[in-house]
Design a protein around this nucleic acid. Structure first.
Length: 468
RNA sequence: GGCGCGGUAGCCAAGUUGGUAAGGCAGAGGUCUGCAAAACCUCCAUCACCGGUUCGAAUCCGGUCCGCGCCUCCA
């Protein structure tokens, strides 16, 4: 089977192929760095990450651009209030964002680009649009005239032909001819930072940066453009209007959007007290891979209900996989190869891949892995498992982890060192040989208090660190 | 109101070209173990509701109810 994605443009699942060669040209909307990113943001960024990994797993090369919006009204407001320059203000959150991504094991796109580093390109694009009569000026700002782009609404599937100029209450403080028109270039208000350019003093509107940076690095037509569902309108609709007006060509072939994240069944909001940044969760002791697992386990097109129960459940699920891997690595099996089990490994791998190819059905992909794990554990218990089956099984786990990446523990928090653990285990082994079970259990409990779990097996005691 | 997405076991959630419901977590009972842990086994849903099509529907059609998102900044 081939890769298929649900395309917002057509509202259908379609087979995916890059337009040219095997390189996927992809643009995804990144963060606006005015604050720490929250888990809702990371739901979307985790989706991008899974998308990247699956594309590569299916043999494609990636040319992926993600923007960092480091100039917008909120940033200006906050920076001004703190008496900082834009650069000074956004640097903190940009770095925090990159750290968070790293913690969540999100791959870095080939191009991570900042809006403020592309002002000249944006100005050139706006001038080109003006040359084609798509714009008008008002009080020093430049607007895009939507009436001149008949296809407006094709992504959000809205029909705007009935909307009349002035029909809506003016909510923006800028003067526009039509409520749907949007700013390409905003004139500075008193005291606001600005760029001095050929189209006047000011700063870029939000939408133009994505059009410009996407096309600069990837060409006129992208294979994939991604973002959260809330960006479909107006952001992505406006990107299409700008880009296609400029080039006369389709801006993106596939539009992929991730659904919202809810917290305990409710929309996350600061006023509701259920607003969490990644940092909030980490400081509560949850491991990054636990969060990553939870975010990745629900297919991206379904709203994800983020709960603390869910985190606990995710941690336990990961432990099940880690236990299996530990067992593969530490238990001894009879020599040889069980061909039936070998074939079972192949079928699990096929199911795993087929699920991901089906519009990134991560839930089904996980099911394929867990079913496989159960079958292999059963085979181990019954003695059918052979030493030769361990390699393929570990390979399958590695394949799984090349997409989900949750098997390796994050840097251990402070606690006992490996050596200290081994020392205590040796002492416990002596106690057990002497059948001093009281002392033996005492040591086990002591270790457990330190987050170390002991398991006695035929090959002796093995241990692991508990995951939260 | 328009556009879009949903309503499957206690929780999360897969399955919609129709054929008698994946998986994870939690729970109950077993096996194994010095005791545990891990692992395995067994048990735990008729798919929001109503009607229709069909030999047969969670899956198709019609209707109803409910939830969420976008329609103004927002992943």
């Amino acid at each position: 089977m081939a890769l298929r994605f649900y395309n917002t443009l057509t509202l259908r699942v379609e087979e995916f192929q890059p337009a040219r060669d095997l390189t996927v040209r992809m643009y995804t909307c990144g963060p606006t760095v005015y604050d720490y990113a929250h888990i809702g943001n990371f739901r979307t960024f985790t989706f991008f990450d899974i998308l990247r990994r699956v594309l590569r797993d299916r043999g494609f090369r990636l040319d992926h651009v993600m923007n960092i919006t480091d100039v917008d009204d909120k940033i200006i407001r906050n920076a001004t209030a703190q008496g900082k320059s834009l650069e000074e203000y956004t640097r903190v959150y940009t770095e925090a964002f990159l750290e968070d991504c790293k913690a969540l094991r999100l791959e870095r796109p080939e191009h991570l680009v900042r809006a403020t580093e592309h002002i000249p390109e944006m100005v050139a694009a706006i001038r080109a649009l003006s040359g084609k009569q798509y714009t008008y000026e008002s009080e020093g700002s430049t607007y895009y005239r939507i009436a001149s782009f008949p296809e407006y609404g094709k992504l959000s599937h809205n029909d705007f032909t009935g909307i009349k100029a002035g029909a809506r209450v003016e909510v923006d403080t800028y003067d526009k001819n039509d409520a749907r028109d949007f700013a390409l270039w905003k004139a500075p208000k008193e005291g606001e930072p600005f760029w001095e350019t050929e189209i006047g003093k000011g700063r870029p509107g939000w939408h133009i940066e994505c059009s410009v940076m996407a096309m600069k690095y990837l060409g006129e037509t992208l294979d994939i453009h991604g973002g959260g569902v809330d960006l479909i309108f107006p952001h992505h609709e406006n990107e299409i209007a700008q880009s296609e007006a400029l080039t006369g060509r389709p801006f993106a072939r596939f539009w992929l959007h991730s659904e919202f994240l809810l917290v305990e069944g409710q929309r996350m909001g600061k006023s509701l007290g259920n607003y969490y940044t990644l940092r909030d969760l980490l400081s509560r002791g949850y491991q990054p891979e636990t969060i990553r697992y939870l975010l990745a386990s629900v297919p991206y097109r379904k709203a994800l209900n983020f709960t603390f129960d869910g985190l606990k459940s995710a941690a336990t699920a990961i432990e099940r996989l880690r236990n299996f891997r530990l067992r593969l690595q530490t238990d001894a099996y009879p020599e040889g190869m069980n061909e039936k089990l070998r074939e079972r490994t192949r079928s699990a791998e096929r199911d795993f891949v087929a699920s991901l190819e089906d519009d990134l059905n991560t839930a089904e992909a996980l099911a394929a892995v867990f079913e496989y794990v159960r079958d292999m554990n059963t085979a181990m218990d019954s003695g059918e498992f052979r030493a030769g089956n361990a390699g393929p099984a570990l390979d399958l786990l590695a394949h799984f982890d090349s997409i989900f990446e949750v098997l390796e523990p994050s840097a251990a928090a402070a606690g006992l060192s490996d050596e200290e653990v081994e020392k205590l285990i040796a002492e416990r082994n002596r106690a057990r040989r002497e059948r001093n079970f009281a002392r033996s259990d005492e040591i086990r409990q002591e270790l457990l208090n330190q987050g170390i779990i002991l398991e006695d097996t035929r090959e002796g005691a093995r241990w692991k660190r508990k995951l939260s």
